[in-house]
Amino acid sequence: MTSLQDIIDPILQNKDIIAKQQNIGVLRVTGLDSRKFLQGQITCDINKLSHDHGLYGAICSIKGRIISSFYLVQESDDILMLMSKDLIEKTLLHLRKYAVFFKAELVDNQDTFVIHTRIISQRLEAVSKTLPEHFITIHNNETITLTLCQDPIEIQWLVTTLENTTVEEKNEKLAALAILAARPLITLEQSETILPQWLNMQSTGGISFTKGCYTGQEIVARMQYRGKSKKQLILVTWQGHSDTTLDITDGQGKTIGQVFAVANIEETYFAQIILNIEPNEMDKILLGNQEVTLLPLPYPLDIKK
Protein backbone atom coordinates (compact mmCIF):
# COMPACT_ATOMS: atom_id res chain seq x y z
CA MET A 1 0.00 0.00 0.00
CA THR A 2 1.34 3.43 -0.97
CA SER A 3 2.41 5.61 1.95
CA LEU A 4 0.22 8.67 2.41
CA GLN A 5 3.22 10.63 3.53
CA ASP A 6 5.04 9.93 0.27
CA ILE A 7 2.10 11.45 -1.61
CA ILE A 8 1.34 14.32 0.76
CA ASP A 9 4.83 15.70 1.41
CA PRO A 10 5.59 16.75 -2.20
CA ILE A 11 2.16 18.42 -2.42
CA LEU A 12 2.35 20.31 0.85
CA GLN A 13 6.01 21.34 0.62
CA ASN A 14 5.75 22.59 4.24
CA LYS A 15 2.88 24.93 3.35
CA ASP A 16 0.06 25.53 5.81
CA ILE A 17 -3.43 25.76 4.31
CA ILE A 18 -6.54 27.76 5.17
CA ALA A 19 -9.59 27.59 2.89
CA LYS A 20 -13.21 28.66 3.31
CA GLN A 21 -15.77 25.84 3.32
CA GLN A 22 -18.46 27.08 0.96
CA ASN A 23 -20.68 24.03 1.38
CA ILE A 24 -20.87 23.74 5.20
CA GLY A 25 -23.69 25.29 7.22
CA VAL A 26 -24.59 25.55 10.90
CA LEU A 27 -27.78 24.50 12.66
CA ARG A 28 -28.09 25.72 16.26
CA VAL A 29 -29.96 23.74 18.91
CA THR A 30 -30.86 25.73 22.00
CA GLY A 31 -33.11 25.40 25.04
CA LEU A 32 -33.23 23.58 28.38
CA ASP A 33 -34.02 20.20 26.76
CA SER A 34 -31.62 20.50 23.80
CA ARG A 35 -29.41 17.60 24.96
CA LYS A 36 -32.29 15.35 25.98
CA PHE A 37 -33.98 16.05 22.66
CA LEU A 38 -30.89 15.31 20.54
CA GLN A 39 -30.01 12.16 22.47
CA GLY A 40 -33.10 10.48 21.05
CA GLN A 41 -32.31 11.52 17.48
CA ILE A 42 -28.55 11.12 16.90
CA THR A 43 -26.23 8.12 16.65
CA CYS A 44 -23.50 9.51 18.94
CA ASP A 45 -23.74 9.97 22.73
CA ILE A 46 -24.58 13.60 23.55
CA ASN A 47 -23.32 13.05 27.12
CA LYS A 48 -19.78 13.04 25.72
CA LEU A 49 -20.15 16.51 24.22
CA SER A 50 -18.44 19.25 26.21
CA HIS A 51 -16.83 22.67 25.84
CA ASP A 52 -13.51 20.93 25.05
CA HIS A 53 -14.73 17.87 23.15
CA GLY A 54 -16.82 17.77 19.97
CA LEU A 55 -18.61 14.80 18.43
CA TYR A 56 -19.18 13.22 15.02
CA GLY A 57 -22.53 11.61 14.31
CA ALA A 58 -25.65 11.25 12.19
CA ILE A 59 -29.42 11.57 12.20
CA CYS A 60 -31.07 8.47 10.76
CA SER A 61 -34.44 7.54 9.36
CA ILE A 62 -36.46 4.71 10.89
CA LYS A 63 -34.82 2.49 8.25
CA GLY A 64 -31.37 3.32 9.65
CA ARG A 65 -30.31 5.38 6.63
CA ILE A 66 -28.46 8.64 7.27
CA ILE A 67 -30.63 11.72 6.81
CA SER A 68 -27.71 14.00 7.65
CA SER A 69 -24.28 13.61 9.22
CA PHE A 70 -22.59 16.31 11.26
CA TYR A 71 -19.98 17.52 13.71
CA LEU A 72 -21.30 18.74 17.06
CA VAL A 73 -19.73 21.63 18.96
CA GLN A 74 -20.83 23.18 22.23
CA GLU A 75 -21.05 26.97 22.28
CA SER A 76 -21.96 28.21 25.78
CA ASP A 77 -25.21 26.35 26.54
CA ASP A 78 -26.11 25.85 22.86
CA ILE A 79 -25.13 23.09 20.45
CA LEU A 80 -23.89 23.79 16.93
CA MET A 81 -24.43 21.13 14.26
CA LEU A 82 -22.03 21.54 11.33
CA MET A 83 -23.33 19.81 8.22
CA SER A 84 -23.71 20.10 4.48
CA LYS A 85 -25.53 23.36 3.69
CA ASP A 86 -27.95 21.66 1.35
CA LEU A 87 -29.17 19.46 4.23
CA ILE A 88 -29.97 22.24 6.70
CA GLU A 89 -33.59 22.66 5.55
CA LYS A 90 -34.29 18.92 5.40
CA THR A 91 -32.74 18.38 8.83
CA LEU A 92 -34.79 21.24 10.30
CA LEU A 93 -38.03 19.80 8.94
CA HIS A 94 -37.17 16.34 10.27
CA LEU A 95 -36.10 17.42 13.76
CA ARG A 96 -38.96 19.89 14.29
CA LYS A 97 -41.42 16.98 14.25
CA TYR A 98 -39.81 15.79 17.50
CA ALA A 99 -38.66 19.10 19.00
CA VAL A 100 -42.26 20.16 19.76
CA PHE A 101 -42.25 17.71 22.69
CA PHE A 102 -39.21 19.35 24.30
CA LYS A 103 -38.05 22.74 25.49
CA ALA A 104 -35.72 23.00 22.51
CA GLU A 105 -35.45 25.32 19.53
CA LEU A 106 -33.78 24.82 16.16
CA VAL A 107 -32.22 27.84 14.46
CA ASP A 108 -30.76 28.04 10.94
CA ASN A 109 -27.41 29.81 11.49
CA GLN A 110 -26.11 29.58 7.91
CA ASP A 111 -25.86 33.37 7.73
CA THR A 112 -24.16 33.69 11.11
CA PHE A 113 -21.09 31.48 10.89
CA VAL A 114 -18.35 30.72 8.40
CA ILE A 115 -16.22 27.56 8.41
CA HIS A 116 -12.61 27.31 7.26
CA THR A 117 -10.46 24.22 6.81
CA ARG A 118 -6.93 24.51 8.15
CA ILE A 119 -4.25 21.95 7.36
CA ILE A 120 -0.99 22.13 9.26
CA SER A 121 1.97 20.83 7.32
CA GLN A 122 4.31 20.22 10.25
CA ARG A 123 4.29 16.50 11.00
CA LEU A 124 3.74 15.51 14.59
CA GLU A 125 6.45 13.29 16.08
CA ALA A 126 4.09 10.88 17.79
CA VAL A 127 0.39 10.53 17.09
CA SER A 128 -1.91 7.92 18.59
CA LYS A 129 -3.39 5.62 15.96
CA THR A 130 -6.49 5.18 18.13
CA LEU A 131 -9.19 7.64 17.12
CA PRO A 132 -11.14 8.85 20.16
CA GLU A 133 -14.94 9.11 20.21
CA HIS A 134 -14.61 12.87 20.45
CA PHE A 135 -12.31 15.47 18.92
CA ILE A 136 -10.57 18.33 20.66
CA THR A 137 -12.21 21.75 20.45
CA ILE A 138 -10.55 24.99 21.51
CA HIS A 139 -12.42 28.27 22.04
CA ASN A 140 -10.23 31.31 21.50
CA ASN A 141 -10.89 34.88 20.32
CA GLU A 142 -14.36 34.13 18.96
CA THR A 143 -12.99 31.17 17.00
CA ILE A 144 -13.81 27.53 17.74
CA THR A 145 -11.12 25.16 16.48
CA LEU A 146 -12.03 21.52 15.86
CA THR A 147 -9.19 19.06 15.30
CA LEU A 148 -10.68 16.41 13.01
CA CYS A 149 -7.55 14.45 12.22
CA GLN A 150 -3.88 14.34 13.26
CA ASP A 151 -2.56 11.55 11.09
CA PRO A 152 -1.10 11.67 8.46
CA ILE A 153 -1.62 15.46 8.63
CA GLU A 154 -3.37 17.69 11.11
CA ILE A 155 -6.74 18.82 9.77
CA GLN A 156 -8.82 21.40 11.61
CA TRP A 157 -12.04 23.32 11.12
CA LEU A 158 -12.24 26.94 12.25
CA VAL A 159 -15.73 28.14 13.19
CA THR A 160 -16.06 31.93 13.28
CA THR A 161 -18.78 34.54 12.90
CA LEU A 162 -19.14 36.34 9.59
CA GLU A 163 -18.00 39.55 11.29
CA ASN A 164 -14.68 37.96 12.25
CA THR A 165 -12.16 38.88 9.53
CA THR A 166 -9.03 37.58 11.25
CA VAL A 167 -8.98 34.29 9.30
CA GLU A 168 -7.27 34.71 5.92
CA GLU A 169 -7.14 32.09 3.20
CA LYS A 170 -3.80 30.79 1.99
CA ASN A 171 -2.79 27.94 -0.31
CA GLU A 172 -6.52 27.17 -0.52
CA LYS A 173 -6.13 25.02 -3.64
CA LEU A 174 -4.36 22.44 -1.47
CA ALA A 175 -7.36 22.05 0.84
CA ALA A 176 -8.45 19.02 -1.19
CA LEU A 177 -6.17 17.02 1.12
CA ALA A 178 -8.84 17.33 3.82
CA ILE A 179 -10.66 14.43 2.16
CA LEU A 180 -8.01 12.16 3.72
CA ALA A 181 -9.57 12.61 7.19
CA ALA A 182 -12.14 10.02 5.99
CA ARG A 183 -14.84 11.31 8.37
CA PRO A 184 -17.26 12.53 5.70
CA LEU A 185 -20.44 14.59 5.76
CA ILE A 186 -23.12 13.48 3.33
CA THR A 187 -24.96 15.77 0.91
CA LEU A 188 -28.66 16.13 0.10
CA GLU A 189 -28.26 13.86 -2.93
CA GLN A 190 -26.86 11.10 -0.69
CA SER A 191 -29.43 11.54 2.09
CA GLU A 192 -31.32 8.38 3.12
CA THR A 193 -29.22 6.13 0.86
CA ILE A 194 -26.36 5.20 3.22
CA LEU A 195 -26.04 3.28 6.48
CA PRO A 196 -23.64 4.74 9.10
CA GLN A 197 -21.35 1.69 8.97
CA TRP A 198 -20.75 2.24 5.26
CA LEU A 199 -18.90 5.43 6.27
CA ASN A 200 -16.95 3.61 9.03
CA MET A 201 -18.84 5.56 11.69
CA GLN A 202 -18.59 2.63 14.12
CA SER A 203 -14.80 3.17 14.03
CA THR A 204 -14.71 6.97 14.22
CA GLY A 205 -16.90 7.62 17.25
CA GLY A 206 -19.94 8.35 15.10
CA ILE A 207 -22.10 5.59 16.62
CA SER A 208 -22.63 4.74 20.28
CA PHE A 209 -23.85 1.20 20.93
CA THR A 210 -24.39 1.84 24.64
CA LYS A 211 -26.32 5.15 24.78
CA GLY A 212 -29.80 3.72 24.34
CA CYS A 213 -32.52 4.26 21.77
CA TYR A 214 -32.62 6.78 18.94
CA THR A 215 -34.46 6.86 15.64
CA GLY A 216 -33.08 4.07 13.42
CA GLN A 217 -31.10 2.51 16.30
CA GLU A 218 -32.51 -0.99 15.87
CA ILE A 219 -31.41 -1.21 12.22
CA VAL A 220 -27.96 0.27 12.91
CA ALA A 221 -27.35 -2.13 15.81
CA ARG A 222 -28.57 -5.14 13.84
CA MET A 223 -26.23 -4.29 10.99
CA GLN A 224 -23.34 -4.06 13.43
CA TYR A 225 -23.84 -7.28 15.35
CA ARG A 226 -25.20 -9.51 12.62
CA GLY A 227 -22.59 -8.25 10.17
CA LYS A 228 -24.77 -8.56 7.09
CA SER A 229 -22.97 -5.89 5.08
CA LYS A 230 -19.29 -5.70 4.16
CA LYS A 231 -19.62 -2.16 2.83
CA GLN A 232 -17.01 0.27 4.12
CA LEU A 233 -15.28 3.51 3.25
CA ILE A 234 -11.80 3.37 1.72
CA LEU A 235 -9.37 5.96 0.36
CA VAL A 236 -7.77 5.78 -3.08
CA THR A 237 -5.67 7.97 -5.34
CA TRP A 238 -4.78 8.15 -9.02
CA GLN A 239 -3.23 10.45 -11.60
CA GLY A 240 -5.22 12.18 -14.34
CA HIS A 241 -8.93 12.86 -14.89
CA SER A 242 -11.36 9.91 -14.81
CA ASP A 243 -15.15 9.68 -14.93
CA THR A 244 -16.04 9.35 -11.24
CA THR A 245 -19.69 8.54 -12.03
CA LEU A 246 -18.58 5.06 -13.13
CA ASP A 247 -18.76 2.04 -10.84
CA ILE A 248 -15.64 0.75 -9.14
CA THR A 249 -14.73 -2.68 -10.54
CA ASP A 250 -12.18 -5.41 -9.91
CA GLY A 251 -9.82 -7.02 -12.40
CA GLN A 252 -12.61 -9.26 -13.71
CA GLY A 253 -14.95 -6.34 -14.37
CA LYS A 254 -17.23 -7.07 -11.39
CA THR A 255 -18.72 -4.01 -9.68
CA ILE A 256 -17.29 -3.73 -6.16
CA GLY A 257 -18.14 -0.16 -5.13
CA GLN A 258 -18.97 3.43 -5.96
CA VAL A 259 -17.20 6.77 -5.57
CA PHE A 260 -18.58 8.64 -2.56
CA ALA A 261 -16.52 11.85 -2.75
CA VAL A 262 -13.59 13.08 -4.83
CA ALA A 263 -11.08 15.94 -4.68
CA ASN A 264 -8.02 16.82 -6.70
CA ILE A 265 -4.89 18.93 -6.68
CA GLU A 266 -3.96 19.44 -10.31
CA GLU A 267 -3.50 15.93 -11.76
CA THR A 268 -3.48 14.07 -8.42
CA TYR A 269 -6.94 12.80 -7.45
CA PHE A 270 -8.12 11.51 -4.08
CA ALA A 271 -11.44 9.75 -3.52
CA GLN A 272 -13.50 8.20 -0.79
CA ILE A 273 -15.08 5.01 -2.09
CA ILE A 274 -17.81 2.87 -0.55
CA LEU A 275 -16.49 -0.62 -1.18
CA ASN A 276 -18.89 -3.58 -1.24
CA ILE A 277 -16.29 -6.19 -0.27
CA GLU A 278 -13.31 -6.53 2.05
CA PRO A 279 -10.19 -4.90 0.54
CA ASN A 280 -8.25 -8.17 0.81
CA GLU A 281 -10.82 -9.88 -1.44
CA MET A 282 -9.89 -7.85 -4.55
CA ASP A 283 -6.94 -8.05 -6.90
CA LYS A 284 -7.33 -4.58 -8.49
CA ILE A 285 -9.42 -1.46 -8.04
CA LEU A 286 -10.50 0.07 -11.34
CA LEU A 287 -12.41 3.25 -12.15
CA GLY A 288 -13.27 2.73 -15.79
CA ASN A 289 -9.94 1.78 -17.36
CA GLN A 290 -7.99 3.64 -14.66
CA GLU A 291 -6.38 1.52 -11.96
CA VAL A 292 -6.47 3.36 -8.64
CA THR A 293 -4.20 2.94 -5.63
CA LEU A 294 -5.53 2.00 -2.19
CA LEU A 295 -4.44 4.34 0.60
CA PRO A 296 -4.39 3.63 4.35
CA LEU A 297 -7.14 5.10 6.50
CA PRO A 298 -6.12 7.47 9.34
CA TYR A 299 -7.79 5.12 11.86
CA PRO A 300 -8.17 1.37 12.43
CA LEU A 301 -11.42 -0.28 11.39
CA ASP A 302 -13.24 -1.99 14.25
CA ILE A 303 -15.52 -4.86 13.29
CA LYS A 304 -17.67 -4.60 16.40
CA LYS A 305 -17.82 -2.50 19.54
Rank of each mutant, 00 (worst) to 15 (best):
W157I: 02
G64K: 03
Y98L: 09
T91Q: 01
L106G: 05
F113A: 06
S128T: 11
E133M: 04
S69N: 06
L93S: 02
R96K: 15
I138T: 15
S121H: 07
A104V: 10
V114E: 13
L92C: 08
E154S: 11
D108A: 03
S68E: 09
I120C: 01
Q74R: 13
D86N: 15
R65T: 08
T145V: 06
D151Q: 14
F102V: 11
E125S: 14
I144F: 07
K85L: 03
E75F: 14
H134S: 13
A104F: 11
V73G: 04
T91W: 00
E125T: 12
R96S: 14
F101G: 09
S128I: 03
R118V: 00
L92G: 05
V100Q: 14
M83I: 12
S68R: 02
E154I: 10
H116I: 02
I136M: 05
I62N: 08
Q150L: 12
E142T: 00
Q156P: 08
S84G: 10
S128P: 01
A104P: 14
D108Y: 08
K103M: 03
D151C: 10
K97E: 07
L106W: 04
E125R: 13
I79A: 14
H116Y: 15
P132W: 04
D77E: 15
T117M: 00
F135Y: 08
T117P: 00
D151P: 03
L124C: 02
D77P: 07
F102G: 12
E105W: 00
H116G: 05
E142P: 00
V114G: 10
E125F: 09
E75Y: 07
I62Q: 07
I138F: 10
I88C: 05
S121I: 04
T112K: 11
I153P: 07
C149S: 15
L80Q: 12
L95Y: 10
E125N: 14
L106P: 05
Q74I: 03
L106A: 05
W157L: 09
M81S: 09
V114A: 13
N140M: 06
S68A: 15
